[in-house]
Write a protein that binds this DNA or RNA. Structure first.
Length: 314
DNA sequence: AGCCAGGCTAAAT
DNA sequence: ATTTAGCATGGC
């Protein structure tokens, strides 16, 4: 599944620090809004430094920069095969094909105009599952803080270029399973601590086989994820969409709920069943993608309208 | 000060 | 079968 070229050539590791150079590549891609994508509440691992984004994928530190030719990537160590990064960023996806299949209505046209270049990532299932267990009734900024704390305390330090801030991997399920609830609560995750710990235990013990969800139907995979305490329909759909690329997963959080109600139901209350049948029938073969555009659209609009009034306070 | 945040669980209608 | 309180924490 993960085609990471692990140990192609282990050259002698007696390299002096001055010889260590970031390895770079440019992934050619058009219509890719890197900032919107990394900030749109899919992953919580990216730090903005100037015009660049620093993060950790698996055990690799990565720095990403948007360039006219595509996305420039730098790593701390030699990379023989960049497939892992192209897969994460989904640079092979033809965005125009996706956007052309959205419903041709006014709200979606506005969302596309607003967010063109927004992409869906393809994340590691465990990290995605764990992150979204931590996400319930939290703002994105707070989820980032919690995830950062979990990685710093319980992840492993990864190699970074000289002069770069230390970075840490996301702790595996067996590590999380071995932590106490108190250790986890110290990262400010509150009532989510026992949920995260139990999820780590379930995955580590093989009671939940994340790799096998690839071979299962979306409905069956959603059921398997929902067996975990703290994982309901919304979080399960986030994992199915962001880690497994299931376009028939359509996470409905408070933002998307408001958007659907306001834009398609005349701002009136809707039952869950009615909403689900509408979503299934209406948003087409890239429903998951459409959901992300709606989410980012209403969220950025709301942020813009909330900034102005504070300037007028006495 | 009160409300809300990429919700879910368990209890009460 | 649906609706509602409680849950930790922090920002506005």
């Amino acid at each position: 599944m993960s085609s990471t070229a692990c140990n192609s050539l282990h050259v002698e590791t007696c390299v002096s620090a001055s010889e260590v150079q970031p390895r770079e590549i440019i992934l050619a891609v058009r219509d890719y809004d890197l900032s919107a994508t990394l900030q749109s509440g899919q992953s919580f691992r990216w730090q903005k430094r100037g015009e660049e984004w620093e993060g950790v994928l698996g055990a690799r530190w990565v720095r990403l920069t948007a360039t006219p030719d595509g996305i420039k990537a730098a790593t701390a160590e030699d990379v023989a095969d960049w497939a892992w990064l192209a897969r994460y960023l989904q640079t092979e996806v033809d965005l125009n094909e996706v956007l052309a299949r959205f419903p041709n209505d006014e709200p979606m046209r506005r969302a596309v105009t607003c967010c063109r270049g927004l992409r869906l990532l393809r994340q590691d299932p465990w990290e995605c599952l764990a992150s979204f267990i931590l996400s319930s009734t939290k703002r994105i900024a707070q989820i980032q803080q919690i995830v950062t704390c979990v990685c710093q305390r319980f992840g492993q330090a990864v190699a970074v270029p000289p002069g770069t801030a230390q970075a840490y991997s996301f702790p595996g399920p067996e590590v999380v399973a071995g932590l106490s609830e108190a250790e986890l609560r110290d990262c400010k995750m509150g009532f989510r601590a026992p949920y995260l710990r139990a999820a780590g235990a379930a995955v580590a013990a093989g009671r939940l086989d994340l790799a096998r969800l690839c071979d299962q139907g979306t409905h069956q995979a959603r059921f398997a994820l929902s067996q975990l305490r703290g994982v309901g329909p919304k979080i399960a759909d986030c994992v199915l969409l962001f880690a497994y690329g299931r376009q028939d997963a359509f996470p409905v959080d408070t933002w998307v709920m408001r958007a659907l109600r306001d834009l398609y139901f005349g701002k009136q209350r809707v039952t869950k069943a009615r909403l689900e049948s509408f979503v299934r029938a209406y948003f087409g073969p890239y429903a998951g993608y459409a959901q992300q555009y709606l989410f980012h659209y209403v969220r950025t609009r709301s942020a813009a309208s909330r900034v102005a009034p504070s300037e007028f306070r006495p």
